[in-house]
Amino acid sequence: MPRGWWTRRSNYFWYIVREFTSLPLALWLLWFLLEIRRAQDGPSGYHPHSSLGFVIFSVIVLLFALYHSVTFLSLAGAILHFNVADRPIPSQLIVLSQFAAWAAASVVVGFVLIYFAR
C-alpha cells in the first residue's frame, strides 16, 4: 500500500477526515475539562475563555463535530437492524430517528446551558 493511498480517491480522503475528527474533538473536550477545573479558582479568579482565538478554534472544531455527527449517525443507522412484525424497518427511517434523537438532545442540552445561566 503506498503511503499516500488516501489521497488518491475522494472517498478515501473523506474517510480519513472522518477518522481525524476525533483529534479536534478530543482537544476541545480537554479544554472543557480545564474549564471545569478552573471553577476551583473561586469567584474572583474564574475567567472563562473568551478570546477570539478560542472562538475560531471552536468554530473549526464544530465543523469537525458536525461531520462526525452526520457520518456516524448515518452509518450507525445503516447497520442497525430491527424487525417489526417480521418486516425490517427501512434503514432510512432508522437514520431519521437517529437524527431526531440528535436534535432532541441538542435542544435539551442547549436549554439547560442557557436557562440555568440566569
Binding site: S51, V55, S58, L62, L66, L73, W102, S106, V109
Partner: peptide
Amino acid sequence: AILLPVHILIQGILGP
C-alpha cells in the same frame, strides 16, 4: 455525535 455539537456551539462560540 449527539451531544458534542451543541456544547461546542453554545459554550465555545455563542457564550464567548
